Computed example of a mutant assay.
Amino acid sequence: MKIVILKEEDIRKVFTIKDAIQADKDGLELYSKGESDIPLRINIDIPKEEGQSLYMPGYAAGAKALGVKIVSVYPNNVEKGLDSLSSTMVLINESTGEVCSIMDGSYLTKIRTGAVSGAATDILARKDSEIFALLGTGGQAESQLEAVLTVRDIKEVRVFDANKERSQEFASRMADKFADVFGVKIIVADSSSEAVANADIITSVTTAKKPVFDGKLIKKGAHINGVGSYTPEMQEIDDYILLNADKVYVDTRDGVLNESGDFIVPMRQNKCTEDIVTGELGEVIMGEVPSRESDQEITFFKTVGSSVLDIVTARRIYEKAMQKGVGQTIEF
């Protein structure tokens, strides 16, 4: 059995954010069509190490995508000089059941998570969008930025983080990387209010347990991506946006309604029900649910992630690597 090992540098050589956006669109369409098998992720506690071991399996026949992403969350690793979070993607040949590739799951997660916001922005945001507000400058922020710059002709990016120094460092680094490529100005906002005022597109990617900006400041016609809230206690998007957006979309109903505090908190307070969801993004792609219907509508997209994004993206990466002869092949 031959297994192809793909590190981050290998993936970067063959796979672009544009490729990832298309992979995410295809994955979500397969999910919404009911043409994928995505079990609930398995979470095993490791009390001795105060850690968790998570397993996210999935199969999408239409994409020939079968595999499992393994994620380890070990907070105490910091004391050992190791990363507190590590991830590995194991891709399986659907025809033989043999492992065909092992790849960097952390980079895979970054690119597919940025790409799903890019896919939603491409489908839902106004075509003439020029101002982009990015809230949060952690590990997911770069791919979120690149994805939006890829699908819209953005003129100005406003970056805000609760840590001003981190905002400045991130903005400077992103300006060096993207300013000339995309012809965009990247600036640091002094507050979240300053960042979102008059912005056409807003992406929030934080771990906040309280809303990070005032939804009443959002202008008509804006599109918002909520990325950070993936547990019932996390709520970075305020109720006002959820209750007043003209259309509300999710990557998967099952994931968002059971995992994200952006929805769970207001639902527990009886401010809304599951019916507030207009549809899954895959349903929009299929043509079963309407997309934006006017330049005045406010659209909101929420993602918590799904293994269908991992397996379809991983399969596309593997195919590109095979075409270009990238990666290390081992006999097992």
Rank of each mutant, 00 (worst) to 15 (best):
K320E: 14
T278S: 15
D153H: 12
L149V: 06
K302W: 04
E331A: 10
A120V: 14
F160V: 13
E146Y: 03
P75Y: 09
Q168H: 14
R152H: 13
D104S: 10
F263P: 05
R112K: 15
K219T: 06
I237G: 01
D190W: 00
G325Q: 10
G221E: 06
L66Y: 03
E29V: 07
D180C: 08
I330V: 15
Y107L: 10
N76E: 02
I70Q: 03
K219N: 00
A314E: 02
C272M: 14
T252H: 02
S95D: 05
S191Y: 00
S291L: 02
G34E: 00
V308N: 02
A133W: 05
Y107C: 09
F332T: 01
K2H: 11
G279K: 06
R12G: 07
L217F: 00
V312I: 07
L54D: 02
E288S: 15
D128V: 07
F15M: 09
L30V: 11
P39G: 00
R316A: 09
V212G: 05
I285M: 00
G255C: 12
G325F: 11
V308C: 01
L145C: 04
V326D: 06
N244Q: 07
D19F: 12
L281T: 04
Y249P: 12
V212N: 04
T109I: 05
V4G: 12
M1P: 09
K210R: 09
T303S: 13
D161Q: 03
E35K: 15
I298N: 06
V289K: 12
I201S: 01
A147H: 00
P47N: 09
M1L: 11
K7C: 03
A61M: 13
K48A: 14
G228W: 02
I5T: 04
T150H: 13
A189G: 11
D161K: 02
E50W: 03
K324F: 07
A20Q: 03
G138A: 09
Q296N: 12
